[in-house]
């Protein structure tokens, strides 16, 4: 009986989550679309061109939010990992697992848009600039997490192994950032053009903030959707397992 109650409890929270997600998702999706359209309109038709960077400043409106979401994605994973290690909460596992590919995509986009911005500004697609390099290493951390999830079949074990790795990674991120900064100042005393100008004018800051809000909402829309799918996937797997068990039992009874 207690075991049955235990399984019920484990299912109950995901069930409540499914309900909550279904209520929130439509609203959040609408909000995302609204913010994104506003942000794009402001970015393309209202924001002036930068006195230094011309129209390429438009890339900043997506590049900066992507870079910010790359870091936020890893923070979400870290917090979820702490939750899954300490409280063994199944939803924390689900949250950590599904945030990884989304965060990795945003990190990749931050790198790609950064290099597309770098070509007209610096003359090359890639510079071993401190920020770019540490974002690249962050991307590798994401890849490692996803690979570990893939490699371990049993979801609860994979979840805890990935949680350990995620926390180790988050302890390491400041050290990596610090060492890359150090390395960069050693090798490039004449630093590349600084992107943060004197001060950002509000006509550029407003669209930037709106775009950042839009992509943050988009992150959570995708995260909620992916989490819902992951809960379904685990239900399907559990049902397939019990089905196999039941079939085995009936066959055993017949024999």
């Amino acid at each position: 009986m207690t075991q049955a109650e235990g399984t019920f409890n484990r299912l109950a929270n995901p069930t409540r989550f499914m309900g909550l997600a279904s209520t929130i998702l439509p609203w959040l999706t609408c909000l995302t679309a609204l913010l994104l359209l506003t942000g794009l309109y402001l970015a393309f038709f209202v924001a002036p061109e930068d006195y230094q960077q011309g129209h390429t400043v438009k890339i900043m409106f997506i590049h900066v939010p992507f870079a910010w979401l790359a870091m936020m994605g890893y923070s979400v994973i870290t917090i979820a990992s702490i939750g899954s290690l300490i409280w063994r909460h199944p939803m924390a596992d689900v949250a950590a697992k599904t945030a990884a590919p989304i965060g990795a995509c945003f990190t990749l986009l931050a790198l790609v848009t950064g290099s597309l911005w770098g070509k007209p500004m610096w003359g090359t697609y890639w510079v071993w600039d401190a920020r770019l390099t540490s974002v690249l290493l962050l991307f590798f951390l994401y890849l490692g997490l996803m690979a570990l999830w893939q490699a371990i079949e049993e979801p609860s074990r994979a979840g805890r192994a990935a949680a350990i790795l995620a926390i180790v990674g988050s302890v390491n991120i400041p050290i990596i950032k610090f060492s890359v900064d150090w390395w960069n100042t050693l090798h490039q005393p004449a630093s590349v053009a600084k992107l943060d100008g004197p001060s950002i004018h509000s006509s550029i800051l407003t669209p930037l903030l709106i775009m950042a809000a839009a992509f943050t909402c988009l992150f959570f829309v995708m995260h909620l959707m992916a989490m819902r799918t992951e809960v379904l996937r685990r239900r399907v797997q559990a049902l397939q397992l019990t089905h196999v068990d039941a079939a085995g039992v009936t066959q055993g009874a017949r024999a």
Binding site: E49, Q52, Q53, G54, T56, K58
Partner: peptide, 13 residues
């Protein structure tokens, strides 16, 4: 502006 406008870098944007 110091740099050429959208015309030159439109492709990148």
């Amino acid at each position: 502006s110091v740099f050429p406008d959208l015309g030159d870098h439109a492709g990148f944007i």
